[in-house]
Amino acid sequence: MKWLDDNKIAYTMTDIKDDHPDEKMLREYHEKSGLPLRKLFNTSGQLYREMELSKKLPEMSEDDMFKLLASGGMFRFEKVMT
């Protein structure tokens, strides 16, 4: 954020704990990030471990992964900038 502020680049901060991104927004975040989709999952979260997603994600389609991320509690980041 400091770099953006220093360079006078406008952004909007969203707290995704309170305002969960929908599937469309997650797809936009993913595209902008340039990261592999699996990197967007909160791998240290309780729900991730309970669902044994480390074993399931490699076999899941992108659509299924986005649906899972949009269901809440799976997204890695607490806040995002747009």
Rank of each mutant, 00 (worst) to 15 (best):
K17C: 03
L69I: 04
L40P: 04
L69Q: 04
F41Q: 10
K55I: 00
S71F: 02
F66P: 00
L4C: 15
E78K: 08
K2A: 15
P36K: 06
T43G: 12
H30C: 00
L37H: 03
M60Y: 07
K2S: 15
E28N: 13
M65R: 01
M60R: 09
K17T: 12
R38Y: 14
D6W: 06
F77Y: 09
P36W: 06
R76S: 05
Y29P: 03
L69K: 12
D64H: 05
E78A: 03
T12P: 01
K79G: 00
R49D: 11
D18M: 03
L47Q: 15
Y29H: 07
L26R: 04
N7L: 10
S61A: 13
K55L: 07
M60N: 08
M60V: 14
T12K: 11
R49C: 12
H20K: 00
L40S: 02
S44A: 14
D19F: 00
Q46Y: 06
G72T: 05
T12R: 11
K24P: 02
T14C: 02
E62R: 04
F77R: 01
K55Q: 08
Y48F: 15
K17M: 10
K67C: 01
M13G: 01
E62D: 12
Y11T: 09
Q46D: 13
E31I: 07
D15A: 11
G34A: 08
A70D: 03
E31N: 03
P36L: 09
M74P: 03
I9S: 09
E31K: 15
I16V: 14
K8M: 11
D22I: 00
D22F: 01
Y48C: 05
L57F: 07
E59K: 12
D64P: 00
V80P: 00
M65G: 01
R27T: 04
T12D: 04
M13I: 09
G45Q: 13
M13F: 02
M25G: 00
M74Q: 04
M25T: 12
F75L: 14
D64W: 03
K24H: 04
G72P: 00
S71N: 06
E23R: 02
F41G: 11
K56E: 14
K8G: 11
P58Y: 10
P36Q: 08
E52K: 10
S61L: 15
E31Y: 09
L68G: 01
P21N: 00
F66I: 10
R38I: 06
S33W: 13
S44T: 15
R38A: 15
P58G: 06
S71G: 08
D5I: 15
L26I: 13
D19L: 03
D19H: 04
E28H: 08
K32S: 01
K17F: 07
Q46W: 09
I16T: 13
L35Q: 11
D64L: 03
S71T: 05
K39G: 00
K24R: 04
H30M: 02
M65F: 05
N42S: 10
M81P: 01
E31A: 12
G73D: 12
G73W: 11
L57Y: 13
